[in-house]
Write a protein that binds this DNA or RNA. Structure first.
Length: 422
RNA sequence: GGAGAGGUGGCUGAGUGGUCGAAAGCGGCGGUCUCGAAAACCGUUAUACCCUUUGGGUAUCCAGGGUUCGAAUCCCUGCCUCUCCGCCA
């Protein structure tokens, strides 16, 4: 949510941002008009209320002294009707205005490259060396089935297409990865959270999955609750509707969650094996910080996610997303793409975004600073990282010519010291 | 799922339908005192919005409706918390 004042004062800036993010449901002119009408009514109704408050205390005084007040009570009855009518109009306008405001995307940061899609993204750094394996590396879905680490047809039997099932060493590998990541982040000051995986529409609105992504979410039938599409939702919403004290900031949160996504209309590209599925697991990083150090915290958050992959020794690169490739709520986003030896290309494994106060406004999450001033917090998050992309990367980058998988050194303590799968 | 109790400011906690944005206490902040601190005493201590913005106004006692000239107070609905019973990993 943007500050209504900002929209009022800089409508062109907001329009340009919406255009660059390709957000067609953002209607700035309508918002300005609703806002003007709203303020007009507020002015009128508040004047009437002021009148009512004045006369009402006069009535109280007269009643006390026993003076008659019937005539002004009659006047007030009419005034009350008028106030109610205006209040109703105001309520409707507010609802309409809020509905429109919910569709105004965040404004991309000045440093974000302007462009229509991912072709305008800028690779900001690269890490690790891509080595020529010297043999034909099997893609993860082949080596995975061969070594009995996963069973995609079983998953289809259970749930339909777009699901995966890990078993044996595959399932244990995932658990090892989760623990490796949680331990690492915790050692770097992140507080581990285990939060609900099913959340309210309000929480989904808070982090701005709603209203835009409604069709991409799994929704429960009777209760109108949503299955989390990312740990971002429960973790960021922890302090929704709260005024928190400055001395608990910055908050670094980490946790494991499954992620549920309908992926409506995503068929085709990069969908084989675990690459695009309706349920995957993720370790998520969330920071809630004061505005002052927001961007320093953000850059460090990117590095925190990179550290996971560096520990595993797999090449990756970091890209700064262009305006057209960013999400609705984001002010600035980096993607981390990991090298996939099986398909010989980089695959997105983490997306790190900062929102400044965009989510905080939607959640109404604020903090009280040293001067007792109440201000919006800044929020940001990043995958740290997605398992459904990390497992393929390991199965492919650690594949040996004899069809076995070497277990990365950092994971061995989590796998009883084993060094090899297969 | 059933029965009951309750939701008031940063916290605890008063509040007969009419000077109640709300007593009191605690905490916080400022001051007096002190070499300094504690204690004591004095003062201060919410948020959002609107406007003709050193000022004025409106709203907010869980949320949303309603009754009324007037609601923290009365009525309805919802949400949440607690207690007991049932069910249950």
């Amino acid at each position: 949510m943007l500050d209504l004042k900002l929209i009022r004062e800089n409508p062109e800036l907001v329009k340009k941002a919406a255009e660059r993010k390709n957000e067609k449901k953002c209607r700035v002119d309508l918002i300005i008009e609703l806002d003007n009408r709203r303020r007009e009514i507020i002015r009128e109704v508040e004047q009437l209320k002021s009148e009512r408050n004045r006369v009402t205390s006069e009535i109280a005084r007269k009643k006390k002294t026993g003076e008659p007040a019937d005539d002004i009570i009659e006047d007030m009855r009419r005034l009350g009707d008028k106030i109610q009518e205006l209040d109703n109009q105001l309520r409707e306008l507010d609802a309409e205005l809020n509905k429109e405001l919910a569709w105004v995307p965040n404004i991309p940061h000045e440093s974000v490259p302007v462009g229509a899609d991912e072709t305008a993204n800028i690779v900001v750094r690269q890490w690790g060396e891509i080595k020529e394996p010297g043999f034909k590396v099997l893609p993860h879905w082949e080596i995975g089935e061969k070594l009995n680490l996963m069973d995609l047809s079983a998953a289809a039997r259970i749930s339909g297409s777009g699901f995966y099932l890990l078993k044996g060493a595959g399932a244990r590998l995932q658990r090892a990865l989760i623990n490796y990541m949680l331990d690492m982040h915790q050692a770097d000051g992140f507080i581990e959270i285990c939060a609900p995986f099913i959340v309210s529409a309000e929480a989904m609105f808070g982090t701005a999955q709603l209203p835009k992504m409604d069709d991409d979410m799994y929704k429960t039938e009777g209760d109108g609750l949503y299955l989390v599409p990312t740990g971002e939702v429960p973790f960021t919403n922890i302090y929704r509707q709260e005024i928190i004290s400055h001395d608990i900031l910055p908050l670094y949160l980490v946790g494991y969650t499954p992620c549920f996504r309908r992926e409506a209309g995503a068929a085709g590209k990069d969908t084989r094996g675990l690459l695009r599925v309706h349920q995957f697991d993720k370790v998520e990083l969330v920071k809630i910080v004061r505005p002052e150090n927001s961007y320093e915290e953000f850059e460090n958050l990117v590095k925190q996610a990179e550290k996971v992959i560096q520990g595993l020794g797999i090449p990756y690169r970091v890209s700064l997303l262009s305006t057209g490739d960013m999400t609705f709520a984001s002010r600035k986003t980096y993607d981390i793409e990991i090298w996939s030896a099986g398909v010989a290309k980089y695959l997105e494994i983490s997306s790190i975004s900062t929102f400044e106060d965009f989510q905080a406004r939607r959640m109404n999450c604020r903090f009280r600073d040293e001067e007792k001033k109440v201000r919006f917090v800044h929020t940001m998050n990043g995958s740290g990282v997605a398992l459904a992309r990390l497992i393929p990367a390991i199965l492919e980058n650690y594949q040996n010519e004899d069809g076995t998988i070497t277990i990365p050194k950092v994971l061995r303590p989590y796998l009883k010291g084993e060094t090899k799968i297969g």
